[in-house]
Structure formats: structure tokens, C-alpha cells
Design a protein around this nucleic acid. Structure first.
Length: 126
RNA sequence: AAGGCAAACUAGUUUAUCGCCGUCUCGAUUUAUCGGGAGGGAGGAAAGUCUGGGCAGUAUAGAGCACCGUACUUCUUAACGGGAAGGUCUCGAUUUAUCGGGAACAGAAAGUGCCGCAGAAAGGAAAACUACCCUGAACUUGUUGAAGGGAAAAGGUGAAAAGGCGAGGUAAGAGCUCACCGUGCUUGUGGUGACACAAGUUGCAAGGUAAACCUUACGGACUGAAAGACCAUGUAAACCAAGGCUUGAGGGUUGCUCGCCCAAUCUUGGAGGGUAGGUCGAUAGAGCCCAUGAGCGAUUGUGGGCCUAGAUAAAUGAUAAACGCUUUAAAGUAAUUUAGAGAACAGAACCCGGCUUAUGGUUUGCCUUUUUU
């Protein structure tokens, strides 16, 4: 089982990010808010995601790094949920994830929340 | 034992599983990817962006004014507003001469401004409220004290009242005179110097404030890695129209003035193309460690060794276990055992030198307080 989660999963093309916000859908699963969109373009990875921890909630750079690392770890563990679905269809998914809580939440609960979130995305696409 | 100050060190360790970002290397082929291996991967402040440089671009023909910064001395350094050593003033402690702090520590005899309240008077060679002295008026002849003058010694106000204190002197007083002290000036000696010490003086006739303007001395081009260079893409300093031509439009030269340089490269409008990617800059440096020489020290000479993060919506993480540390509770005379909890401040973004701020722990030195012997 390939659990790697490298550079190719990063969404950093400005046009795609603008597209996610203009035409994508929104799902809230506290503490996450995700904007996502199905695209026909061929990407380097099955899905691409941008992770964001707002400066408004975490003033210190050290805290923002901590939150983003935890989020990346949860996505890495749960990515098979999305990849199974995507491998059946020909489309790719791009996402913009925002962490909305003002405090750090334990890793185990973040895992469950993230799992729920990805299942909701799949239902929504279907 | 607790608290405070200063200095130094440290910033949990190991293993397993799954991952992240570079570097080197091997193999495979579809020549651009895949797979394997080796090795590296945040800090003492990476922070604040307060300073000094390097580096890069623009410009180099300068001068004056303006503006900004610094301000005891000597040294140190690439440089500094940093650091070292020292001087002066000042605060605290006592062991009275030492120790430990602090200082926006140049100039008030160039000029201007300001000094609230209180007080008679607050800067003008000023000022007389009480009380003092002299002259002197009135009458009740020992009282009241008009008026004029003297006087800064006493009281009172104030942060500050015009050198301090004592003696002489005087109507009462006054540096008016004298001794001592303080302070200014001159000379000499010592010191690289800031200054110190000594002697003299027919100076004391006059405050503070420059963290008010100001004066003096010294220094200062501007911008900032989103700098900048190259590659890729695009006909793009391209195209169309109008105005403007050597009798000088316009541009550059720090903000202004003068001066200087370039000189039709210009101005306005219209229509319209494309990028927002990559490589370098960018990690071998005023570098770090060790030894040794010079110096009180900051620092520096010489020799040897080492290579030590380079990301770019931004890498160093997650989970589990063990050990170590701190702490709480229980058991025990004690060593200790068991169980629980905790581990700070904080994330490189071109690179260095400093400063400042945040912060867990350990050690050493000094000081204070309390308890026991």
C-alpha cells in the first residue's frame, strides 16, 4: 500500500485555486471547511489539495506549521478513500482545505473527522 | 530552605512502523520517469526588523542650503548607535575605603524661548511681606508708629532666593575684610587622552533648562533579494492617429537652488498580444572547532582540522514503546517502589556582526531573609 504524500499532491496553480472558489462546492465538517471541484484535466496525482491555517486564528508561525502538519498527516492516512473512488471515474479532484478552529485538536479526533469529510465528498460527487 | 542579580552550559535520548525536502550514487527503460542504496535536514533566540556592513541595481561633475544620525577618553572591528579598558558625576551598602549598580556625560560668556502653583520678588545688574537699623512725626513722655532712607543677616514660600560656615566689622548689615571649604581662571607636574594632583589668583558681578529652538565637531547618495541576471513564450521599446522639431520639447543628476550632462530617445489618445513558469542569485563564509603566540581586555597573528538546512502556497512530521528529568499522591526508618501528571519560548526564507524582547532546566559566584545547631 502506497502511503506517500509528496509534492505532486500539492495544489499550487493559481488558476485552479481560483476555479475552486468560483465554481466549487463547500462542505463543512468541524474543524474543517473544504472547497472542492471535479476537473477533467490530467493532473500529476489523483487529487490535489491546498492546506490552510489562517493567520487570523494562529498568530505564531510555529502554531500554523503544527496545524498544517497534522492536517497533512490525516490526509495521508485517509487518502485511499478518495483514490478508490477516483480510480473508477476518469476525473480528478482539487480541494482547498481550511482549518477553522482556534485551538489545536487531538490527532485521533482529527483522523475521524477527516474520514467523515472524505466520505461526504464522495457522496456529494455521486 | 526561599528570593534576587550576574556568568557559563543545555534545549530530552533510543528503537520500531508509515511519511516529507535536498544531495550523491547504482540499475532499468519509454530519455524522462520509476525502483534501490548511502548520507544530510531549524534556533538560542530562527523572533522584533532596532542598527552596522556585504551583495545588487540606478547614478557618478560638483557646490551651497535643507534633512538625518552620533556626541567623556583611548582602543577594538569590514563597520556600528556594538564591545573592551579607563575617567568624571551620581545612587546604595557597609568593612570608610572599597564593593555593587546608574548616566540622552559636547556647548548656557553667540542668540532666542520657557521656568506652572506658592511667594514681596523667578532673571531685569531684579526684589522689602513680617521682622531689623537710622532719620524722624504725633501726643497721653513711654507708647503708637505716618513718611523717607539703609539693609538680603533672621522668618515665611518654593525644586531653586544669588557661594557655604565661622570670626572681624557695622546704626543694622553686606566677600565689605580674613581663615577654611566650594567654584572659575592661570601656571607647573603626571598621563596617549578623558582627567588627576600641587601652587598662585586685586575672580565669585548673577540660576536652571539644549529629553526647547539652536551652536560646534564628525559622519551620511537612493532603493532593497518581490534587488538583479539569463532562458522560455509573444511581431511587443511593436502597430495606428494627433501634437512636438535645435530659436531646445523633454529626460538625468538625492529634496531645493545653481551648475553640468544627454538631446527628439518625447507627450497624449486608440486598438491589442502575452506572462504570472524555470535556472542562477542562494549557501565556503569578515565561517566553525582545536592548539599556540601578542594584549589587562574587547580583539588579533600563526598552524592544523571540518563542510555544517537551502525550501519556494514554503521540507524536519505522526503513532507506539522503553529509558532519563521535574512534580503530586500512597507505602516504607531509609535507600527505594507503585500510580498519575508535566516538559517552556518558539520555525530558517539572500548572507553575516551586534542590540532588544520571550523562555524550561543545570552548574558556579555574590547578596538578602527565615529556621536549626
Amino acid at each position: 500500500m502506497n502511503q506517500s504524500f509528496g509534492k505532486e499532491y500539492k495544489l499550487c496553480r493559481r488558476k485552479l485555486i481560483d476555479g475552486v472558489f468560483k465554481t466549487g462546492k463547500v462542505i463543512k465538517q468541524y474543524p474543517f471547511v473544504v472547497h472542492f471541484l471535479e476537473v477533467d484535466e490530467k493532473l500529476e496525482a489523483p487529487f490535489q489539495v491546498t492546506i490552510s491555517a489562517p493567520k487570523r486564528n494562529f498568530r505564531k508561525a510555529h502554531d500554523r506549521n503544527r496545524i498544517k502538519r497534522l492536517m497533512r498527516e490525516t490526509i495521508r492516512f485517509n487518502k485511499m478513500i478518495l483514490e478508490d473512488k477516483i480510480s473508477k471515474s476518469q476525473k480528478n479532484i482539487i480541494m482547498f482545505m481550511v482549518y477553522t478552529s482556534r485551538e489545536e485538536i487531538p490527532f485521533t479526533t482529527l483522523m475521524k473527522k477527516n474520514e467523515l469529510l472524505f466520505e461526504q465528498i464522495i457522496k456529494n460527487i455521486e
